[in-house]
Design a protein around this nucleic acid. Structure first.
Lengths: 217, 217
DNA sequence: TGAGGAAGTGGACGCTGTCCACTAATCTGC
DNA sequence: GCAGATTAGTGGACAGCGTCCACTTCCTCA
């Protein structure tokens, strides 16, 4: 598998690639490696090989392997956020409708868990920040991105507007809910519950749904 | 730092160590490495160095680095389970007393989160099983050990006996609760919330407590 | 047009996990 | 009590990894 977008074989020429091509290619390659093997699988030399460049070329774009991994993490996190946003958008029903708001909360949690199950490598990578950095810090300076937490908050606010969630219980409730869903994803994905049969996993997921639902009332 | 218990310097003699000493030493060394650097830090060669033995000697006791890591994981998990058990045992009040049962549930969650905060390396390692293996599978054949999940279950059963938790809500509730606490530990420990100030972390923990408390009633 | 920086190459180093061949200490059965 | 088999260690090697330094080549801009 190669990610090289402008191969320039035959000639040993350098710098035939457009501006940020190598950097972008490295991130794309790292994302591919992370997809199949998680954060540990994003190895610098392999990424450069996929791009068709010598290992040291990576050091023109990243301070080292950790910085490359950080970029891959951000990309993975963005993919998760995008899936959550898409899942919420798919739910019909206008803002303020109690049933629709509940469905949106359910959709957001399901999207989270589905991403963790369908893309375990990317999910693990999204939360394997190698170096300290703010959650969802802007990647390329294009302003703040919407993080998974932002999407969850929006839905919870709607639940308050719809009268489903008592306003006095709203403050900070995104954290236990996020924790619960994230914890389930981790335990059943990479953790001790990862080998439970599919039926059990669905059952756990359903149990989580009722648990959260009851905590709203 | 060395873990060698029966150094035998001066002579190049082999096999001066008692029966399982090298194996135990390797696990202890790995545990030490994991304590300071997490699962990635348990490197086979370094462990053998700490034990005072040549790298290849490890292959007499483990099939490879992953198997050593698995043993270290089990040890870390046991330490977590022990802390939880100790925390529960410290709570006074006889079985069936509602207030005492609640305190025990709180104690068990707090112990979990404290372990994750005080020993982030060990906590990460406890859940970084490199190979598939049953949760809390017996390590050395000395019968089943009590896992963190076992301890949680016992306390939840007591909450039912004490009339705090409705029996109809009991079934499977250990999973969302475990997930919630585990998720909080991961998010604030290694995850995106790891850099929040201490006061915020305590606040999140308290919010989790009320969240779970309300879900019982 | 020419200087200077940006981006890629080449080679090297130390570290890792792992394999193979070998040897010395211990255990076992007679 | 000793000979053979087993076990637990040594020694040397290999490929792959991240990273550093020196060098070259292309592109940009004054």
């Amino acid at each position: 598998m190669t990610v090289d977008q402008s191969a320039d074989e035959t000639s040993g020429v350098r710098r035939r690639r457009p501006r940020g091509a190598v950097r972008d290619g490295l991130v794309a390659a790292g994302l591919e490696l992370a997809r199949t093997g998680g954060p540990d699988a994003v190895v610098l030399r392999e990424a450069t090989r996929m791009v068709g460049v010598v290992p040291n070329a990576a050091y023109r774009h990243f301070a080292g392997r950790d910085e490359l991994l950080a970029a891959v993490c951000r990309a993975a996190l963005r993919e998760l956020a995008d899936r959550m946003a898409a899942a919420v958008a798919r739910v019909r029903g206008k803002h303020g409708d109690p049933a629709a708001a509940r469905r949106r909360l359910h959709a957001i949690g399901t999207a989270y868990l589905e991403f963790a199950r369908e893309e375990p490598g990317l999910f693990a990578t999204a939360f394997a920040l190698p170096t300290r950095h703010d959650y969802g810090a802007p990647d390329d300076g294009t302003g703040q991105e919407r993080t998974p937490l932002d999407h969850l908050r929006a839905v919870l606010d709607e639940l308050v507007d719809a009268g489903v969630l008592d306003r006095r219980r709203r403050a900070g409730i995104e954290y236990p809910i996020w924790s619960a869903v994230h914890g389930l994803a981790v335990l059943t994905g990479q953790g001790p519950l990862r080998d439970v049969p599919d039926a059990t996993r669905r059952h756990l997921q359903e149990r989580m749904r009722t648990f959260i639902d009851e905590s709203l009332a």
